[in-house]
């Protein structure tokens, strides 16, 4: 592994979100939704609070502890989805999971978006996490918070379905 791989993993944006996590804290449940994700292998832990109103994630808060990748990914995620609609958020989750499933050999040619079927520019700061795929063991660190977010959205949908019944 060349040292550029490591620089690719620990980009400045990632280290910044690790040192200064955004949207840190908790919210009252209810009205907010609380979801925990835990990686028993390494002890990484992320708690996501979602406050949804009229189909919009009005507020997102993050708690937890773990490695730089799991915690910066949670912070980047909170910044990316706060204020977005539930539908927009689902699209962001789907794009992020695609980013994590790109084979590392395709990264060399990352300017070719058609090959990856992803608009990296549109992903903003989240694209900084693409270096993670070079380190397969760490993908589950990066994806931890996103699994919690996806579960939270499902629970929100369940609640609103119940209400309409």
């Amino acid at each position: 592994m060349s040292s550029s791989g490591l620089e690719d993993l620990y980009r400045e944006i990632i280290l910044d979100h690790y040192r200064n996590p955004r949207n840190r804290g908790s919210m009252e449940v209810p009205p907010s939704q609380r979801v925990e994700a835990y990686n028993p292998l390494c002890g990484d832990e992320v708690v996501v609070y979602l406050l949804e109103n009229n189909g919009v994630l009005e507020d997102v808060r993050i708690e937890g502890q773990g490695c730089s990748i799991s915690q910066s990914s949670a912070s980047l995620m909170s910044a990316a989805v706060k204020g977005k609609t539930v539908e927009e958020t689902r699209k962001i989750i789907s794009d992020f999971k695609k980013l994590m499933s790109i084979h590392e050999s395709k990264l060399e040619d990352s300017t070719d978006d058609t090959q990856m079927d992803l608009d990296l520019d549109a992903m903003g700061e989240l694209a900084a996490l693409q270096g993670v795929v070079r380190f397969p063991v760490r993908i589950k660190c990066a994806i931890l918070a996103w699994n919690a977010l996806a579960q939270g959205l499902d629970e929100i949908s369940d609640v609103s379905t119940d209400k309409t019944k």
Binding site: L6, L9, Y10, L41, C42, G43, C67, I69, F135, R138
Partner: peptide, 20 residues
Amino acid sequence: HPHDLAQVLDESNVCIRAGH
């Protein structure tokens, strides 16, 4: 974090274990 430590060490081909 121990995982970050082990990852950086691996770059220098130093194998240590991180975890519980």
